[in-house]
Amino acid sequence: MPAPYSYDLRKKAVDACSRGEKKRTICRLMKISRNTLLAKIRSPKPKNNACSL
C-alpha cells in the first residue's frame, strides 16, 4: 500500500489549481495522478494539519 501524501503537497496542488494552472501540469510536476488531484479539489478542507492527501 502506498504512503499517503503530505498535507503540504495537498495544499500546494489545490492552491496551484485555484491560481488557474492546468491540472495536467500540476499532476506532472507533483507526481500525483489526476484522479487524486480531482478528489482533493472536491473534498472538504481538512480540519487539522495531520491530514493526508
Rank of each mutant, 00 (worst) to 15 (best):
P4T: 05
G20T: 09
S18Q: 12
D15G: 03
K12S: 12
C27S: 08
A39S: 14
L9G: 03
C27K: 06
K47D: 02
A3Y: 04
C51Q: 04
N48Q: 02
L29A: 13
D15H: 09
M1A: 10
P44Y: 01
S52F: 03
S52D: 07
D15Y: 06
S18K: 15
K11S: 02
S33E: 06
C27E: 05
S18D: 11
C17Q: 06
M30F: 14
K45E: 08
I41L: 15
I32Y: 04
K31G: 04
P46M: 01
G20F: 10
A3D: 09
A13L: 12
A39F: 03
V14M: 02
K31F: 04
A50F: 03
P46R: 00
D8A: 10
K47R: 14
A39K: 14
R28Q: 15
T36L: 13
A16F: 08
K47T: 07
K40S: 01
C51R: 01
S6G: 10
C17N: 12
L9E: 11
L29S: 11
M30L: 15
P2R: 11
D15L: 10
E21W: 10
K11L: 11
M30W: 09
M1G: 12
T36D: 08
T36I: 05
T25L: 13
L37F: 07
R34S: 07
M1E: 11
K22S: 15
R24W: 06
G20I: 14
T25D: 12
A50T: 08
S6T: 15
N48W: 00
E21K: 12
T25N: 10
R19L: 12
